[in-house]
Design a protein around this nucleic acid. Structure first.
Length: 646
RNA sequence: GCUGUUGUAGCUCAGGGGUAGAGCACUUCCUUGGUAAGGAAGAGGUCGCGGGUUCAAGUCCCAUCAACAGCUCCA
């Protein structure tokens, strides 16, 4: 007998060779029906794989990542089988499960797989799944694996096998399809009940843009038809929150082909929103003893040669601006740091001046690849809520922690509870991509890791994601359909101070080099507003929203009363509109609900006589009638209440 | 930049070789209505831009620009 230990540390005995599925069966028939994969001694296994020795196991159902993973991974194989039948000679790259669903990268040779072909592939998958065949695992030697796929002509699989170690290679077969795969898989295709192929796109083989582009087909599957329907509804709902759609509907921003792609135009309402965010951050920054500075939108090319940015990005940027002066070249500024370094150098600095915190809402211009542009989240001109902190090395950690505090304040104020933190370090295998000494990099990386530990912040560590001049701590937030965007960022930099020969005089009356922190809590105003729109679906908090109140007169007879009220509120700093259209009240309510204005005030004969307003809260309906003074106080208290917290 | 898709009225979209359509928005008129769409009339488009095929091109072909999904990239 072998001992199986469960997650709750209970132990039961089974015959050697028992499978995960049989263990589930022994617990309950219901569990046996729901279980999808099993973790055996911290390794993900198939349910049908015999367990031969004592082991600790955890059974996974749909609700576990591991369960879904096996389900979707098996679905990828099913799709591959369908493709193999429909496109004879098709070659396969990789086909993993992802956060939601799965994809497979394939090379259909001369054939082209288009979106219009997806329903056919889908139908074939349904047909194949209905045959209820098992997924069979098979250990195989490297030599045999190579031969199998060479014979088949699957050059991509051959390349993958060449990178694997002998003794670790397994194949999985269902029906007529065999794939190189680590597993685990479902026991049987019968579990895959609902299938939807979502889109087809190009993807470079092994993510390398110099290599061949394969065809990637994305799909998602579910054990129940109802779950698929619900998922598709969810997707539709998410699309309604798209900031590009809401930005247009609420007249926040626009693009013009004539102005140029990736160059956003901020409309009055969007500008109002953005300026209010800027004011909020400025207020916080005053409290943290920042000083505002302003610098030009262009700078002499030499500035960026010194910083190292020109060597790294010069060719892929907006090209230099030439002047009538022979040989004189300026760049649209792609970042603010070099300008701020020059401000540092305006006069000799003492250790008593540090830390020096220099903030600027600085608009920068970067020539992003055309395929990268995306609404307001990725643009060619954007405004960073930038600041550079010049400090003594021993002040670094404290300053870093203070910046983290600012970011937490911002995220809390705007209800971004679900952010992820990422520490981006240098790729130790590929050091030539970065400037600066190993010693400086080590110091900088250590400072970030320690700061996160001190704050108890759980951060994912990514190698090779650092900026070329220093490591960073990024804060990522997801958009409506689950794409991750980097918002706040903090970067430690020992290198620019060296390149710009920044100095301060220490207590010992000798020259020292300061350390620099780059930071942007919002990241950029454009991207932050975009993500904010998707999080709020355009229902901005009262303190932030462009229009706070709209007055709806019952009929045109009460327009004058409405204008009087508007004037009163205006004097009390309330942002108010009057809907004086010749429409029925029901119509006005509907239209203004859709504009997501927080308060609607309905005024007619009763209200005009008594100096009252009938209040509606957006999305909540009628709130009853109160005196106008009372309403003004209520709105101002609500706004002040929020601002006082910070 | 790469692969695929899409560009028709301010917006959302129909029309797929015979000379431009709908709903909403807009303008005017009627209506002055009490908590999510009152009625009528009108105006609005070289069908993304440029070539080509054709007696005839939103419609077919080529090129180009832009947008969308994904890849690559992101100081």
């Amino acid at each position: 007998m072998i001992k199986i230990t469960f997650p709750d540390n209970s132990v039961r005995e089974f015959n050697p060779g028992v499978t995960g599925f049989q263990v589930a069966e022994s617990i309950s028939p219901r569990l046996a029906q729901d279980v999808l994969s099993v973790t055996v001694n911290d390794q993900l296994w198939d349910l049908t794989r015999p367990i031969l020795t004592d082991a600790s196991i955890k059974l996974h159902k749909w609700d576990d990542e591991e369960g879904k993973h096996a389900f979707w991974h098996s679905s990828a194989h099913l799709m591959a089988e369908a493709l193999q039948e429909l496109y004879p000679g098709i070659k396969f790259g990789i086909g993993p499960a992802i956060e939601t669903g799965f994809y497979y990268d394939v090379d259909p040779g001369t054939a082209v797989i288009k979106e219009a072909d997806l329903p056919v592939i889908e139908a074939k998958m349904v047909e194949l799944a209905a045959r209820k065949v098992a997924y069979n695992r098979q250990d195989i030697s490297k030599a045999d694996a190579l031969k199998t796929f060479q014979d088949k002509g699957d050059e991509y699989k051959v390349e993958l096998i060449n990178d694997l170690q002998d003794g670790t290679i397994t194949l999985y077969t269902q029906g007529n399809f065999t794939d190189l795969c680590r597993g685990p898989h479902l026991p049987n295709t019968a579990d895959i009940k609902a299938i939807k192929l979502l889109n087809v796109a190009g993807a470079y083989w092994r993510g390398d843009e110099k290599r061949k582009m394969l065809t990637r087909i994305y799909g998602v599957t579910f054990p129940k038809k109802k779950m698929l329907d619900e998922y598709l509804v969810l997707l539709e709902e998410a699309k309604k929150r798209d900031h590009r759609k809401i930005g247009k509907e609420l007249e926040l921003f626009a693009f013009s082909e004539t102005v140029g792609k990736g160059l956003p135009l901020w409309l009055p309402r969007g500008t109002a929103l953005r300026l209010r965010l800027e004011d909020f951050l400025k207020k916080i920054q005053r409290r943290f003893e920042y000083q505002q500075v302003m610098t030009p939108h262009i700078g002499n090319k030499q500035l960026y040669v010194t910083s190292g940015h020109y060597a790294k990005y010069g060719k892929d940027s907006f090209q230099p601006i030439h002047t009538p002066e022979e040989g004189e070249e300026y760049l649209l500024k792609p970042m603010n740091c070099p300008h701020h370094c020059e401000i540092y150098k305006v006069k000799p600095r003492s250790y008593k001046d540090l830390p020096l915190r220099m903030a600027e809402f600085g608009t920068v211009y970067r020539y992003e690849q055309s395929g990268e542009l995306h609404g307001l989240t990725r643009v060619r001109s954007f405004t960073q809520d930038d600041a550079h902190i010049f400090c003594r090395p021993e002040q670094l950690k404290e300053e870093f922690l203070k910046v983290m505090d600012i970011i937490f304040i911002i995220f809390k104020a705007l209800d971004f509870e679900n952010f992820e933190a990422q520490i981006s370090l240098r790729d130790p295998e590929n050091k030539e991509k970065y400037i600066g000494s190993d010693e400086n990099w080590d110091k900088a990386e250590r400072a970030i890791v320690e700061a996160c530990q001190e704050k108890g912040l759980k951060a994912r560590v990514e190698l090779g994601e650092a900026a070329f001049y220093g490591p960073k701590l990024d804060f990522m937030v997801k958009d409506a359909i689950g794409r991750r965007w980097q918002l706040g960022t903090i970067q430690v930099d020992y290198n620019l101070p060296e390149r710009f020969e920044l100095e301060y005089t220490g207590e010992d009356n000798t020259k020292h080099r300061p350390v620099m922190i780059h930071r942007a809590p919002f990241g950029s105003m454009e991207r932050f507003v975009a993500v904010l729109i998707e999080h709020t679906a355009g229902k901005f908090p009262l303190w932030l929203t462009p229009d706070q109140v709209v007055i709806l007169p019952i009929s045109e007879k009460f327009n004058d009363y409405a204008y009087d009220l508007a004037k009163k509120m205006n004097l009390q700093d309330i942002r108010v509109q009057v809907d004086d259209r010749n429409e029925k009240i029901g119509r006005k309510i509907r239209d203004n609900e859709l504009k997501r204005i927080p308060y609607m005030l309905i005024v007619g004969e009763k209200e005009a006589e008594n100096g009252e307003v009938s209040v509606r809260r957006q999305g909540e309906g009628d709130k009853g009638t109160i005196k106008i003074e009372e309403f003004i106080k209520m709105v101002n208290d609500e706004v002040a209440g929020m601002m006082e917290q910070y």
